[in-house]
Design a binder for these strands. Structure first.
Length: 427
RNA sequence: GCGGCUGUGGUGUAGGGGUUAACACGUCUGGUUGUGGCCCAGAAGAUCGUGGGUUCAAAUCCCACCAGUCGCCCCA
């Protein structure tokens, strides 16, 4: 029998990688809070219709088969969340946040699930840092979520990021544009690959995102949505750009940036990083003024983004950026079994209660000093506290500094004071 | 769902038909009685991804499957 393995597309986050996660989550939380956002967590499972609605017919079939959906005995269909936004909007409506002072600024962190074929930077379970503003149409709200993303990456020391920006219009101007795009593509049908011909029928905007060779020129000459926005969308977009310019935040207007789902309106954006494979977007988001209504709530504008933590980690590692050191105990208690062990255990917990991190050497029987010293060395311990028979008898502890300093003997009653002095030095 | 590449101790690799599968790192033990790093000595740890086939003989060649990985599709 072979040992059971983890399911496809699921990752174990080992301590070495986990350092990055903690750092990212900590940094993201700090940035969001600095902007006045509050954390709200929603369940990992929601009723399936929450995700099915609002996505639109084009993505319906394709997207839904990539969800982890469970049909329950009582006939309810539930789904492992494939995104954050729908759940947060649901919670906003269900818990009456509609009656809080508007807008409501929220963030969340956690796993999401998509049943796709894994590749670099794309896993079936991945985690997102997610930020949303509900109940605000001001382009300054769009700016705010975008800047949270940028701030996060900057605080992490990320280099070489590009802000990709586009507007996807609204229910008024988007259909008009799609018709124009379709018309143009139909005129050049012979130049389209089979896959793009399909896309043209199913979800024409996606043709803009085509990876087929030779599409650059054809698409450059195609109608671009920013030239076909209605007055409202046009001014929203101009306004947002003006604010970005005022902050001297560089960005690229990318007319090929599209989102496949119907609920997006006006602003769409991504942040791209180099060196993490074909899935270069480290962050994707936009405005979704139609979503709340689509899931049965009051019409409420919203804007937000999700940023994949695994991809941020990949990018940081690619750039050789190290997370800050995580705190480790700086003392280890060595002993020789029997009464010395009991004394060591007691002293260990005394230190821990006093807020001093301590590692206790484990040993079922008498264990050699050498072995315990080697252990201390492996974990970058600064002081080995030795409790042997003679120390226990005298009520002292021998302190062996591992940095080459002189070995000293201290009264056990003075140990905490002594350590507090030593450990604050050089730190 | 489709395609490319890859599967040898914990990790990284060598071995590309012939008896006990090699090396490095890591792990553990020891180098006198209670003292680390470096060094030295030793040990543990691999059904060579799984199953079939070819052959006197397979880690090695062939097929299938599985897993990983990269890309396509899709991307909320």
């Amino acid at each position: 029998m072979t040992a059971i393995q983890r399911p496809k597309g699921m990752q174990d986050v080992l301590p070495d990688d986990r350092r990055y996660w903690d750092w990212i989550i900590e940094t993201g939380t700090a940035v969001a809070q600095q902007y006045g956002f509050q954390r709200l967590d929603v369940p990992i499972i929601e009723f399936t219709p929450l995700f099915a609605r609002g996505m639109g017919e084009a993505s319906d079939v394709f997207v839904q088969k990539e969800m982890y959906t469970i049909e329950e005995d009582d006939g309810e269909s539930i789904t492992l969340r494939p995104e954050f936004t729908a759940g947060l909007v649901r919670a906003y409506i269900e818990n009456g946040l509609t009656n809080w002072p508007q807008p409501v600024k929220l963030f969340s962190i956690g796993p999401i699930f998509r049943r796709e074929r894994p590749q670099a930077g794309r896993y079936r379970q991945h985690s997102q840092f997610d930020v949303e503003i509900m109940g605000e149409t001001d382009p300054a709200a769009d700016l705010e979520v975008m800047m949270i993303a940028m701030n996060l990456y900057r605080n992490l020391g990320y280099k070489g990021l590009t802000f990709q920006l586009n507007s996807t219009g609204c229910p008024v101007c988007k259909p008009v544009y799609i018709a124009k795009l379709k018309e143009y593509l139909a005129d050049h049908l012979d130049k389209l690959a089979a896959i793009d011909q399909e896309r043209m029928i199913r979800n024409p905007l996606r043709v803009l995102d085509s990876k087929e060779p030779g599409m650059d020129e054809l698409l450059a000459n195609a109608p671009h949505i920013v030239d076909h926005l209605c007055a409202d969308c046009e001014s929203h977009f101009a306004n947002l750009r003006g604010l970005l310019d005022a902050l001297e935040q560089s960005y690229t207007i990318n007319f090929r940036l599209v989102r496949g789902i119907d609920y997006y309106t006006k602003t769409v954006f991504e942040v791209w990083a180099e060196g993490i494979g074909a899935q270069a977007a480290v962050c994707g988001g936009g405005r979704y003024d139609g979503l709340a209504e689509a899931i049965g709530g009051p019409s409420t504008p919203g804007v937000g983004f999700g940023s994949g933590i695994e991809r941020i980690v990949l990018g940081l590692q690619e750039q050789g950026i190290e997370p800050p050191d995580t705190p480790q105990p700086q003392v280890l208690l060595a002993h020789f079994g029997g009464a010395t062990k009991t004394a060591a255990v007691k002293l260990t917990y005394l230190l821990r209660d006093a807020g001093i991190g301590a590692r206790l050497a484990f040993a079922r029987e008498r264990r050699s000093m050498k072995s315990q010293m080697r252990e201390a060395n492996k974990y970058a311990i600064r002081f080995v506290l030795i409790l042997g028979e003679s120390e226990v008898e005298k009520g002292v502890v021998t302190i062996r500094p591992l940095d080459g300093g002189e070995q000293v003997e201290i009264l056990q009653t003075e140990l905490i004071t002594w350590l507090n002095e030593q450990l604050t030095m050089n730190n």
